[in-house]
């Protein structure tokens, strides 16, 4: 991954307390797993930023190296990698995601 891509990814994560790298956008998710995470974040009532990796192949591959995680979507809260769809949904159902968001003063 080029340094430029790495820097761009880091910037996105640093600038946005809740950052979701996904396929598609908030209003037009283009993958069931990405959409599931969008719905979870809406139900948590937290503001979040998204990045459509389908529109940027460099970030699409770079984010997998950045997090050592082979799939999309990828959720970051307060700079920390939370997980993909199954972990985010599991944490939402157990209340752990709420705790992470509250600890970062986001809900």
């Amino acid at each position: 991954m080029s340094d430029d891509t790495q820097a761009r990814i880091k910037q996105l994560i640093d600038d946005n307390k809740v950052m979701l790298f996904m396929k598609g956008t908030k209003s037009f998710p283009q993958c069931g797993f990405s959409n599931a995470v969008v719905q979870v974040l809406k139900r948590e009532g937290v503001a979040f930023e998204t990045f459509n990796i389908l529109a940027d192949p460099a970030v699409r591959e770079g984010i997998k190296v950045f997090s050592n995680w082979p799939t999309l979507p990828q959720l970051y809260v307060n700079g920390k990698f939370i997980g993909g769809c199954d972990i985010t949904v599991e944490m939402h159902e157990s209340g752990e995601l709420r705790k992470e968001l509250a600890a970062a003063g986001l809900v």
């Binding site: 995680w69 990698f81 997980g83």
Partner: peptide
């Protein structure tokens, strides 16, 4: 949880960067 999933992904080698789209 995240590290457990990473262990599983590691055991699948490069299957995760091609044949398997979602797991």
């Amino acid at each position: 949880r995240v590290e457990r999933h990473r262990m599983v992904y590691a055991s699948l080698g490069n299957a995760m960067s091609g044949p398997i789209h979602a797991l």
